[in-house]
Structures are given as structure tokens and as C-alpha cells.
Amino acid sequence: MIIEQKNLDEIRVDIFKALADPTRLEILRLLKNHGDEMSCGEVGDRIQLTKSTASYHFKILREAGLTTTRKEAKHKYVQIYPDTFSTYLPGFLDSL
């Protein structure tokens, strides 16, 4: 039971670390308002991020389980992963 709780706590820490950045909150807000996946380039362009900075933020969000990314040819597409929010942060997306 202690190991299981530790894993849950580690998940929570990763989620809150990812959410503790205004740029990542802005990315999530943009994705939520768009309602569907967006290309990583489009997200970066809309919030004026360099490609490397956007990539860094996408990685943090993905590793925390807050987004998913799929690759199609040369393009990557990102979208919110709602299961993480409903499990760990119910109602959070509505507050964005």
C-alpha cells in the first residue's frame, strides 16, 4: 500500500509541476478552447514560442500525462488527455 501511494504521489507531483508554469497553462487553455488536436507548430505560433521552447513544454505536459502527441509524416499533433484530468483534477479544465 505504501508503494502504491508513493506512485500516486509521484504522479500528482509531476502533474502539479507541469501545471506550475504559465506557458503550459496557456497551451492547455488553447487546446481546450480549440476542442481538438492541433499541430505543435500551430500551438507554438499562436502563443509565440520558438520551436525548441514549445517542444520542451510539450514534453513536460506529455510526461505528466496531461497531453498526448501523435506523429504524422513530418508533423506532430498534440491534444489534451482528458482521463488524467478526470482522474486527478476533476473540474480543472472547466476552470481554464
Rank of each mutant, 00 (worst) to 15 (best):
S55K: 05
R62Y: 09
T69C: 11
Y81A: 08
Q48T: 10
I2H: 10
L28R: 04
R29S: 14
Y77V: 03
R12K: 15
G65H: 13
I3C: 06
R24E: 04
D14I: 04
E72P: 00
L49K: 08
D21W: 06
L61E: 05
K59W: 04
G41N: 13
S39Q: 10
F85G: 07
I47K: 08
L49I: 05
R70I: 10
S39F: 02
Q79K: 14
I3F: 12
G91V: 10
F16E: 12
K6Y: 07
L66H: 11
Y77T: 05
T53E: 11
F58Q: 01
I2Y: 10
Q79H: 07
T69G: 08
R24G: 01
I80H: 06
T69V: 15
Q5M: 09
L28Y: 04
E10C: 03
S52R: 01
F16C: 04
M38D: 05
S39K: 12
T67R: 05
L8D: 15
A20L: 00
D21V: 09
S86I: 08
D45Q: 14
Y56N: 13
R29L: 08
L96H: 00
S95N: 02
Q79I: 07
L31W: 05
G41P: 03
G35W: 01
L28T: 05
Q48E: 14
L31E: 03
L61D: 06
K71Q: 10
T84N: 14
I47D: 08
I3A: 15
D21N: 15
R62D: 13
Y56I: 05
R46Y: 00
I27Y: 01
K32E: 09
R70P: 02
L28V: 04
L19M: 12
G91Y: 11
L25N: 11
G44Y: 03
F92V: 08
I15H: 07
L96I: 00
Q48N: 14
A54N: 11
L30H: 02
D94W: 03
T23D: 02
P90W: 11
L49P: 03
N7L: 15
